[in-house]
């Protein structure tokens, strides 16, 4: 229910897209409802851009939920292709869905990616009273008996949370992915609630969703999917240290329409870079459990093309796409 309910949150804000359009200030589209990562990206980056003077007027945030970001993507490609006053929030989920052809045939080449300035590290979490002490414990348990562990995550089957588990299991030498039990819930918080209640054994999610439960002692983080340990959470081991070579972060960034001028692209990537380097952004990252991650402009475009290729390959391997 929640998903449909939440859809209407955007209400008044969306009206401005529907009926206004005459606004002169720049606009940031969050392709989801308020409260999620994309909404956070738009609101926080937009606010800091204005506060540090990278843009002249406050950036107006528009929520445009639908099709897992597909509606906003189609809107940008088809109706706003040359709009130089438009930025759109994006994340790993955008890349995953583009790679899995979930946006009705559109590809990442239909827009221009601007950059990412923070990332929410992927984590594997169990309840504090669970018997698994390390990622290897958990993966060994799955290998021994796949029915003994159910994973819960905030994305649907085949989504990024699910892929993270499959990648980790793949590296550990377990390939019978159809035997892996995964349920997709409405969000990371829901998934953790189910784990604490003992209904599922492990949660795959993002660091920011876990922080509160970690502090309260309800859960144990078995591994983070980053290259290095996260500052502030130095006692949590990475998956790499445990011999599982998976790096999976949920980066937070933006894209712009493809048809804008090179100067406009440059202007926006400068503004984004300025935000990424600001103290305000550092504080916002810390408050929200984000780890540093900085790639802007053509460098980001090149990196992303590689990532999307990898996800597409993995999705074909596991049969999520044909």
């Amino acid at each position: 229910m929640l998903k449909t309910v939440v859809k209407r949150l955007a209400a008044g804000v969306v009206l401005s897209v529907g009926l206004a359009g005459a606004a002169s200030a720049a606009e940031c589209i969050a392709p989801a409802n308020p409260g999620g990562g994309w909404d956070f990206t738009c609101r926080t980056i937009g606010k800091i851009m204005y506060d540090i003077g990278a843009v002249d007027e406050p950036i107006q945030v528009t929520n445009m939920a639908g099709g897992g970001g597909g509606l906003a993507f189609a809107h940008v490609v088809n109706e706003r292709n040359t709009d130089e006053d438009l930025i759109v929030a994006a994340s790993s989920a955008t890349a995953t869905r583009l790679a899995q052809n979930k946006y009705g045939g559109a590809t990442y080449k239909d827009v221009r990616f601007l950059g990412a300035i923070g990332a929410d590290p992927g984590v594997i979490v169990v309840a504090a009273d669970a018997p698994y002490q390390s990622l290897t414990d958990l993966l060994d348990a799955v290998k021994a008996d796949p029915t003994s562990v159910t994973f819960a995550g905030g994305s649907a089957v085949g989504g990024y949370d699910h892929l993270k588990v499959l990648m980790a299991l793949g590296r550990a030498g377990f390939d019978d992915i159809r035997a892996v039990k995964y349920i997709g819930l409405d969000g990371g918080g829901d998934a953790i609630t189910q784990a604490i209640g003992g209904h599922v054994q492990a949660v795959t999610g993002d660091m920011s969703e876990v922080v509160g439960f970690l502090k309260s002692g309800d859960v144990r983080v078995l591994a983070v999917f980053t290259d290095d340990r996260i500052p502030g959470f130095d006692d949590i081991p990475t998956a790499k240290e445990q011999g599982i070579d998976v790096v999976a972060v949920n980066w937070r960034g933006l894209y712009v329409p493809k048809g804008i001028s090179e100067e406009a692209y440059q202007k926006w990537s400068d503004a984004l870079a300025a935000v990424g380097k600001s103290d305000e952004w550092k504080a916002a990252m810390e408050a929200n459990g984000l780890a540093p991650f900085f790639k802007v402009g053509p460098e980001f475009e090149g990196w992303l093309a590689g990532v999307i290729e990898e996800i597409a390959q993995l999705s074909r391997d596991i049969g999520v796409i044909q």
């Binding site: 008044g12 009206l15 401005s16 009926l19 206004a20 359009g21 005459a22 606004a23």
Partner: peptide
């Protein structure tokens, strides 16, 4: 009163 971004007439 409600501050919705309605447009009165076409641009």
């Amino acid at each position: 009163a409600l501050g919705l971004g309605l447009v009165a007439f076409p641009k």
